[in-house]
Design a protein around this nucleic acid. Structure first.
Lengths: 110, 110
DNA sequence: TTCATTCATCGTAATATTGCAATGAAGCAA
DNA sequence: TTGCTTCATTGCAATATTACGATGAATGAA
């Protein structure tokens, strides 16, 4: 009913899904790519860089922050965001494990 | 407005988001893991394996199939699903490229 | 043919997500 | 103080997703 029945899945499955959902929107992909590109951290430049309204960007940043993938530090009236390397690496390992399951070479289905 | 503004993002960003969305639900993660585990293909066993109703599983399978990640072949009254190795590999490369962006080692944000 | 099995599709309800205008909170400058 | 800037939050509308009962299509068995 529009709500995922998380309780019938393993913690691992739910964790993979949670992380994957973070990348499930092009705006969040763009935000992360931009944070990677410029090694100094950015703030509201993301609003100019990506063509979405400021509240929308703020919402996406919040989602990424809640997952721990980015961190923000206040600098006067500005807020500086950057990748959180530790959590990014952890997430990367979890997703890579899932993606790298071996595809058995038999090409035929059934 | 509930609709992603895909037009303001690059094809690459939209593609990453589309694939990631496929893993953004634990049921689809579970389906894929099960298809990997048993190397012979499965059909409605997925309904028993995962605790969701048959139409729900069917819906998730359709989503995965539309992305090309799995393929299904009819066998009498049954339908046999399995990973599509070619598309899986392609998807894996696209997502890995994104995940493996270098985290610059400077730990401090701004 | 009739019946049972298997799966897809339809229709619908409940919830989630996306997006933005309006507003609020916090800092800095004058 | 006032005003400006920057960002977060609130509130709401539009759309998407998730889930399942009911039904339909196709096959095989009797």
């Amino acid at each position: 009913m529009g709500i995922s029945k998380t309780e019938i899945f393993t913690d691992q499955q739910n964790e993979i899904a949670l992380f994957a959902k973070a990348f499930g929107h092009p705006a969040r992909v763009a935000i992360l790519q931009h944070l990677f590109k410029i090694d100094t951290c950015v703030c509201g430049d993301l609003v100019n860089e990506i063509g979405l309204a400021q509240p929308t960007i703020s919402q996406h940043l919040k989602a990424l922050k809640n997952l721990g993938l980015i961190q923000g530090s206040v600098e006067g009236t500005r807020v500086c965001y950057c990748i959180d390397p530790k959590h990014w690496t952890k997430m990367k390992q979890i997703l890579s494990n899932f993606l790298n399951q071996d595809v058995s070479i038999k090409s035929d289905c059934c």
